[in-house]
């Protein structure tokens, strides 16, 4: 119980009048493998406010992806609750669109444009084909893929596929966009490019995004607020501000200092883990 009161105490209300859009309250998530029942996160609490670029940061095995799946509605917490705009989350829905790390998240049997209109029409955004088309083209333009709208996904590069997935997610105008290490499978240069583009897109509309990563640097660049999680099981270590950090001050002292601080936090008291268990958690 101590841990819970601790974290709740840490969740100090913001100074402004804004209310959190997403509330995660003492959430414990568990899943089964063939032999074990694994606790992925233990009593994790945090609030996401509108326009946040909220990053879940932690080493592998800290349950950050599982947490995102919980928020998306694919898993039910065994303890605690998750509320979006005050309503408890019970199942997956188009008000929280997920962007995955895997390139196969696009439907291979639909073109770039059809992938977006498919989402719009099945997600209840619009039932009008012409309108869906128009929205799709707008977002394709936003992610700089004009000219590729009738291409099938297998013809696109990894970066382009992720752009389509992001366009598809943003076109839905969800309450919160969930991104599960979306750039992890890209090469370094493309990743850098995609981070910049994501920030530019954010400048346009200030959408709310929940971003999972294991890279401290990416967290600082992309995020405005960072939740640091400890591994096995995932527990809240700290919640930090990073809204003043971006690509421009990557080499700066401030940046390096925060980076070092998080690094120490994550590796200072590293728990010795059962090797096999660690492998299972990574899956």
């Amino acid at each position: 119980m101590d841990a819970k009161t601790d974290t709740v105490a840490g969740k100090k209300p913001a100074t402004g009048t804004a209310k959190p859009i997403l509330e995660v309250d003492g959430v414990t998530l568990q899943y089964k493998t063939k032999e074990h029942l694994i606790t992925a996160t233990y009593r994790v609490s945090f609030d996401v406010y509108p326009a946040d670029r909220f990053v879940l940061l932690g080493p592998s095995g800290c349950g950050k992806s599982t947490l995102l799946k919980g928020i998306a509605g694919y898993m039910k917490p065994v303890e605690g609750d998750i509320r979006l705009k005050g309503r408890e989350i019970s199942e997956p829905g188009p008000d929280r669109v997920m962007v995955f790390q895997e390139f196969d998240q696009l439907l291979p049997w639909k073109t770039v444009k059809q992938n977006i209109t498919f989402a719009l029409r099945n997600g209840g955004k619009t039932s009008n084909a012409a309108e869906a088309n128009e929205i799709a083209m707008e977002y394709i333009h936003k992610v700089k893929l004009t000219g590729f709208e009738d291409t099938f996904p297998h013809m696109l590069s990894g970066g382009m596929k992720q752009r389509v997935a992001i366009a598809r997610g943003m076109a839905m105008e969800p309450d919160v966009l969930l991104m599960d290490e979306p750039f992890a499978a890209l090469d370094a240069l493309t990743r850098l490019q995609m981070q910049k583009e994501l920030l530019q897109l954010w400048e346009d509309t200030h959408f709310t995004v929940l971003f999972v990563t294991h890279s401290i640097e990416e967290a600082l660049i992309v995020g405005s607020r960072i939740l640091v999680l400890s591994p096995h099981p995932g527990q809240v270590k700290a919640e930090l501000n990073a809204h003043e950090l971006n690509h421009d001050n990557v080499g700066s002292k401030v940046f390096a200092r925060v980076q070092q601080r998080i690094h120490d936090m994550l590796f200072a008291d590293r728990i010795l883990e059962d090797e096999i268990l660690g492998e299972e958690l990574d899956k």
């Binding site: 841990a3 402004g16 200030h206 700290a238 501000n241």
Partner: peptide, 19 residues
């Protein structure tokens, strides 16, 4: 477009291992 809500940072000093 809503602007970012700036909140104080916090750090858990100790994680309840036993719990």
């Amino acid at each position: 477009a809503p602007s970012i809500e700036i909140r104080p940072e916090f750090e858990a000093d100790e994680i309840g291992k036993a719990a």
